[in-house]
Every structure is written in structure tokens, then in C-alpha cells.
């Protein structure tokens, strides 16, 4: 009962591929659901959770965690009696990803899942890479952005990814050794990537040692 984690350089098509795989295999696709669940647990808005994700290690987090006390946050957000910071986010994240994986037949997009599930025998870890220009082009086409906007989004997301992994003490997230399969999307189409992953998980005896 496999679990697929997809880590990716932003704009290399990870979300699109994850949705396609989940649809074809009848798996659950875990992406925004994780944000929603964390928001419910923390009793904050999904937007706040996304801010923590996007600004990991950044300005927003420093403001919320250090300059604003929890009671003050409560008073400001009268209808939103919760609180979240990077540490709380990570605490929820590790438990939720572990629990989602227990339920099998799931594709999990990013969020450190390749580390959290690195010793799970039935988990397959995939990394998608691509060059900057292609990733910008992908974002332009997929999200109807100008070249400048798309380039900015890719740069911001690359920095966010770096910051998020830095927060958990990881800098080797693009190392091939962490993964079962690394796909260079500059040379492989989305359909080919899909077929490669399906072929991999259909193997009866996965190699699991890392």
C-alpha cells in the first residue's frame, strides 16, 4: 500500500504531477488539506498557516513569535482564539504527515515528508528538478503570470523552501540519495514522469535502505 512523497523545485510541476498520479491511481492527494487540518488544530485561519509556511524564518514569523505575545494575539483576533508559529506548525506537521501516511495510498506534496517518512518501507520518495527558466515558463503558463511575475514567484518560493528546511536543520533536500527517483523535468515530460513513478511503485519489492 504505497505512499508517494513528491519534493520539488518550485515550478517543476510537482502539484500537477501529484494530482495526476493521485487521480490515476485512486490515491488521496495531500497538499492543501494539510494546511486546512493544521489551521483547524491550531484554531487559526488557513491563511495564517500559509503565512507561516511562506515566511518560514522570515519577517512575519519574527513579528508574530517575538514581538507579539499570545494573549495579545488573542485579544486582537477575538474570533480566532488560536495561535500558530513555526514550532507549533512543525509539531502538527510531523504528526499529520505520519498519520496521513499510515492511511496508505496517498500522494503527499513536499513539506518535509521525505524526511518524516524516510524509514517507512512502503514510501517512495520522488524529487522533481528543473532549470530556472523552465520553471518560470511553467508558472507563466499554468497560472497566467507575466515573465517578471513568474520569475519573482519562483525566487520567493525557492527562498521559502530553503528557509523551511533550514528551520528543521536540513540543507540536503536536493540530494539524490534521499530519493528513490529524481526526475529532471527539463528532459522528461509530465506524462513520462507519471509513467516512471507508476512503474516504480508497481515493483513488488522496493529498495528501502537510505
Amino acid at each position: 500500500m504505497p505512499v508517494i512523497t513528491i519534493s520539488r523545485q518550485f515550478g517543476s510541476g510537482g502539484r500537477t504531477l501529484g494530482q495526476k498520479l493521485a487521480g490515476a491511481l485512486g490515491y488521496t492527494f495531500a497538499d492543501q488539506d494539510i494546511v486546512q487540518k493544521i489551521a483547524e488544530l491550531a484554531k487559526v485561519s488557513p491563511g495564517w498557516v500559509e503565512s507561516v509556511e511562506k515566511e518560514a524564518g522570515g519577517r512575519f514569523q519574527r513579528i508574530v513569535s517575538k514581538m507579539v505575545s499570545k494573549p495579545l494575539v488573542d485579544r486582537i483576533l477575538k474570533d480566532e482564539r488560536g495561535y500558530i508559529d513555526e514550532q507549533i506548525y512543525i509539531d502538527y506537521l510531523v504528526v499529520l504527515i505520519a498519520q496521513i501516511a499510515e492511511e496508505d495510498n496517498v500522494v503527499i506534496l513536499g513539506r518535509g515528508s521525505q524526511y518524516i517518512l524516510n524509514d517507512m518501507p512502503e514510501a517512495y520518495h520522488i524529487l522533481l528538478i528543473d532549470n530556472f527558466e523552465n520553471r518560470v515558463r511553467f508558472i507563466m503558463e499554468k497560472y497566467d503570470k507575466t515573465e517578471k511575475e513568474a520569475a519573482n514567484v519562483v525566487k520567493v518560493e525557492d527562498r521559502r523552501r530553503f528557509n523551511l528546511y533550514k528551520k528543521i536543520g536540513k540543507q540536503d533536500y536536493d540530494k539524490p540519495e534521499l530519493y528513490h527517483l529524481v526526475i529532471n523535468m527539463a528532459r522528461v515530460s509530465l506524462d513520462q514522469a507519471h509513467d516512471l513513478i507508476v512503474k516504480l511503485i508497481k515493483q513488488p519489492s522496493p529498495v528501502t535502505s537510505i
Binding site: 488544530l41 491550531a42 499570545k70 502538527y92 504528526v95
Partner: peptide, 8 residues
């Protein structure tokens, strides 16, 4: 899993 600070 609890709000504010988890059992974890």
C-alpha cells in the same frame, strides 16, 4: 493534537 501547544 491540541491547539496552542500540542502534546508532541
Amino acid at each position: 493534537l491540541m491547539p496552542r501547544e500540542s502534546g508532541v
